[in-house]
């Protein structure tokens, strides 16, 4: 490894013998890495193992646990709230991911230029990402309020609705309203990722395609998108992972309603643990989520891998 050059450059009695040097390096490295190792082991590996163990037990919030495997997993198949949340979460993930991909790419292409004032627009689009997801959800909750927020009045003014606008009172409207909020909150964030990818494409490539007389659309399709693939993949994985685990948008904005029609998988798990006080069942759902998520991410990376490695 390259790090041996440091040791080799060092002279004096301390550097006698390569084995001793390697040992010293290992000790220093371990010491520097120790805090990180402690955090990963105590706060991540141990809880993960405990989650697996809890899922095999009847584990009430208060009281002593008792081994009952595989009851918690069997119970999942009868948990109507969780089962319907699976389909809802998948639908939400698919729709939101497509929206994120299209809008963030469009925004990135828009602000890619070097016109005067471009920095202002980039900041403006990115600013909602600095607002917390909980605050964003509360902000839109007020925006969607017919008496208090301006959106209802605006829609009436445009003649799009009559009477009270329906933002959160039917399940379709609640879904749409949440998607709008999430798009507002995340579009700029994904735009910056796309922009980073776009800027890594050398100008020469575009020049070449222009020389060949390619139109803007042809350039986008056959030059930009293929070269942007790693970035698109990153956005895809981030969006799919984040959306499958969506909690705040629905927990705060729609509160899972109306009549549990917008309950996501994580909300279902949260209720199992902290409304029904059944930590064992919640852990079982958590384990299912974990396996599903790892599987989906591996599948995405596999399906979209570079098929012709250069």
């Amino acid at each position: 490894m390259a790090s041996s050059t440091v040791a080799a450059a060092r002279v004096g009695p301390a550097s006698r013998g390569p084995a001793r040097r390697a040992r010293r390096e290992a000790t220093s490295g371990l010491l520097f890495a120790l805090p990180a190792i402690l955090f990963v082991v105590i706060l991540f590996v141990v809880p993960l193992v405990l989650a697996a163990w809890m899922s095999l037990n009847d584990w009430p919030l208060i009281g002593s646990p008792a081994f009952n495997a595989p009851d918690n997993y069997v119970a999942i198949s009868e948990n109507q709230l969780f089962l319907s949340s699976i389909w809802f979460t998948i639908k939400y993930t698919a729709i939101v991911t497509v929206i994120f991909l299209v809008i963030s790419l469009a925004l990135a292409l828009l602000v890619q230029s070097t016109r005067p004032g471009i920095g202002f627009f980039r900041t403006a689009f990115l600013l909602p990402a600095a607002v917390g997801l909980a605050s964003s959800a509360l902000l839109f909750y007020a925006l969607y309020n017919n008496e208090y927020g301006p959106l209802g009045d605006m829609l009436r003014g445009l003649g799009l609705v009559e009477g009270n606008a329906d933002f959160l009172s039917s399940s379709e409207a609640a879904f749409r309203s949440t998607v709008a909020m999430v798009t507002w909150r995340f579009a700029g964030f994904y735009m910056i990722i796309m922009l980073t990818g776009l800027q890594a494409i050398p100008v020469e490539v575009y020049e070449a395609s222009r020389m060949d007389g390619a139109s803007w659309w042809q350039t986008l399709r056959s030059i930009t998108l293929p070269l942007l693939k790693p970035t698109i993949l990153l956005v895809l994985v981030l969006s799919v992972t984040g959306s499958l685990l969506a909690f705040e948008p629905f927990y705060i904005l729609t509160q899972g309603g109306p009549s549990n029609s917008t309950v996501t998988m994580v909300i279902a798990m949260f209720r199992e643990a902290f409304t029904l006080f059944d930590l064992g069942s919640a852990a079982a759902i958590a384990m299912v989520l974990l396996v599903a998520l790892v599987g989906i991410n591996v599948a995405q990376l596999y399906l979209l891998r570079d098929k012709d490695p250069k």
């Binding site: 991540f44 809890m54 852990a283 974990l290």
Partner: peptide, 12 residues
């Protein structure tokens, strides 16, 4: 840590 849902480890 990135791959594991936060709620999965928050309960334990």
């Amino acid at each position: 840590i990135l791959m594991v849902p936060h709620p999965t480890i928050l309960v334990p």
